[in-house]
């Protein structure tokens, strides 16, 4: 594996730079599910030449951009319940089929947000564990274990500076050993059962990354 590249002559990635970077890492012709929130913005950076087909778990392949004006149809929404449009070649199917596509390993990539990811690929993104929080899982667990590659897209640090890439998740898990790559504003990490490896870093040195995450990062 090639050694990591530390881009220290610049700041961390802005949100749209991060989304563009994730988009560039999606192989041409992939079937892809983009999670709710920040991952949705990856769609804005996919070029038509990439030939990526978007899956939305409420029952559609070939999902297009957000609908505007007269295009808005209450029967045509994405998993975030936002009205969208269909693209040529789109297909509709029911929920059991939609999740069979995931569990059956037919989706190439999903991009999810996260509260925490552990260095061996455990994902926590559905529940903070707070006693008064109402648990809501949606399709997060199905996506986590279903897609062949699971990309997480998140800020590396919380607002109070704690690393969201951790040795062991403290929040309730969504899936075990499932995350393959973590894209953050400060660095990209490739994960495996053997741990995390830095692929590239932005606006942060190797030493600072180790200190601020508290992780052993080869």
């Amino acid at each position: 594996m090639s050694s990591p590249t530390y881009h220290v002559d610049r700041g961390p990635l802005a949100k749209d730079e991060l989304a563009a970077l994730v988009a560039r890492n999606i192989p041409d012709g992939s079937f892809v599910n983009l999670g709710i929130g920040q991952p949705t913005t990856v769609a804005d950076h996919l070029s038509p030449e990439q030939g990526v087909v978007l899956h939305t778990e409420n029952g559609m392949l070939g999902m297009g951009r957000a609908a505007v004006g007269d295009e808005i149809d209450p029967d045509l929404i994405n998993a975030g319940k936002i009205p969208v449009i269909e693209t040529p070649g789109a297909a509709y199917f029911h929920h059991a089929d939609s999740f069979a596509m995931m569990r059956g390993g037919h989706l190439d990539v999903c991009v999810l947000g996260a509260f925490q990811v552990s260095v061996n690929g455990d994902l926590a993104n559905w529940h903070t564990g707070a006693p008064d929080a109402i648990p809501a899982v949606g399709g997060a667990m199905d996506l986590a274990i279903g897609a062949r590659q699971v990309f997480v897209m998140m800020s590396l640090f919380t607002k109070t500076g704690e690393s969201k890439l951790v040795e062991r998740c403290s929040y309730p898990l969504t899936g075990v050993n499932c995350v393959t790559t973590v894209f953050t504003n400060h660095a990209i990490f490739d994960l495996s059962p053997h741990g995390a490896r830095v692929r590239a870093a932005y606006g942060i040195s190797a030493d600072e990354l180790r200190v601020r995450t508290g992780l052993i990062l080869p």
Partner: peptide, 21 residues
């Protein structure tokens, strides 16, 4: 839910569909 007047069973979305299937 917060006042204890309805019970909740949370099921992953795909598992919910497949259990009915």
């Amino acid at each position: 839910y917060r006042s204890g007047r309805v019970q909740l069973e949370v099921v992953p979305q795909g598992t919910l569909a497949e259990r009915m299937r």
